[in-house]
Design a protein around this nucleic acid. Structure first.
Length: 241
DNA sequence: AAGTGTGACAACCGCGATTGC
DNA sequence: CGCAATCGCGGTTGTCACACT
């Protein structure tokens, strides 16, 4: 049970957070579509100085945009290797398979599609693929036939992911394969080869819980993704049970 | 021709995680 | 260790173009 002082501290933290100003709150900031001149300024600046420090970039580049907006514009449209245009059939297949595996982890999915960005994959999923799956009679959320008698999976599975150099944590929502395991408690299927993806999932129970895990927090199951078509470091999923 | 509906996509917003002091 | 700043992600919204009535 939490002490009253701890509760108070948490309340104050919450209030402070709520009071934090949004990065784009300045009134003289541009919003909306980017002009050609703005694009050119951003490209020129990044060519000269490289990516990074998005907070200070706009001022240094002479842009009336917030850093967040600059980053998004660069990553999604201005980067030299960004692929534009229609998705090929094999790209569609890959997205569908990866979505079945990872759920709405758009950045992870996009990471396996060279030249595609998370925003583009997400938009394409929402406008094309979701409808395509519905048309084919399967549920775009859990990738099962629409009238399957199998009960729906847990709404959300909490995971942490490490991709080698830069570990981060995530929540995997609507990830049918991961949820299947949770839902059915069948670890005999692991390691699991995911056909055509050159991905391999391995589930293994950790014998000792990670340090810093507070009492009462869930134990985790480790899930390795190996292989990968583009030679990236293999992410490790930790599935909490 | 005008009004309305729908799809596609660019951009914004909020939040959690990470980092640096 | 705690706090503030910053980054990155995913959900959502806004806007434009086109189709349909």
């Amino acid at each position: 049970m939490l002490s009253s002082s701890l509760l108070l501290t948490r309340l104050l933290q919450k209030q402070k957070k709520a009071m934090r100003k949004a990065c784009c709150e300045k009134q003289d900031m541009n919003k909306g579509a980017w002009s050609k001149q703005e694009d050119q300024k951003l490209i020129d600046y990044i060519r000269k100085h490289g990516e990074g420090c998005w907070r200070t970039l706009p001022q240094a580049a002479g842009l009336l945009r917030c850093g967040k907006s600059c980053r998004l514009r660069w990553i999604n449209y201005l980067r030299p290797n960004v692929k534009r245009g229609n998705f090929a059939e094999d790209e569609e297949d890959l997205i569908i398979k990866l979505h079945a595996l990872l759920g709405n982890r758009w950045s992870l999915i996009a990471g396996r599609l060279p030249g595609r960005t998370d925003n583009e994959v997400k938009n394409y999923w929402n406008s094309h693929l979701r409808r395509k799956l519905l048309k084919m009679g399967s549920d775009p959320i859990n990738h099962r036939p629409k009238h399957s008698i199998i009960p729906p999976p847990m709404a959300q599975t909490t995971c942490s992911v490490s991709t080698g150099a830069t570990p981060s944590s995530l929540k995997v929502s609507n990830s049918p394969i991961l949820q299947d395991r949770k839902g059915h408690g069948d670890e005999r299927n692991c390691p699991k080869e995911v056909p055509d993806l050159n991905l391999k999932l391995t589930l293994s129970f950790q014998t000792s819980p990670p340090q810093a895990r507070a009492e009462g927090e869930p134990k985790s199951t480790e899930c390795h993704m190996s292989g990968g078509s583009h030679g990236e470091p293999s992410p490790t999923l930790l599935l909490f049970r």
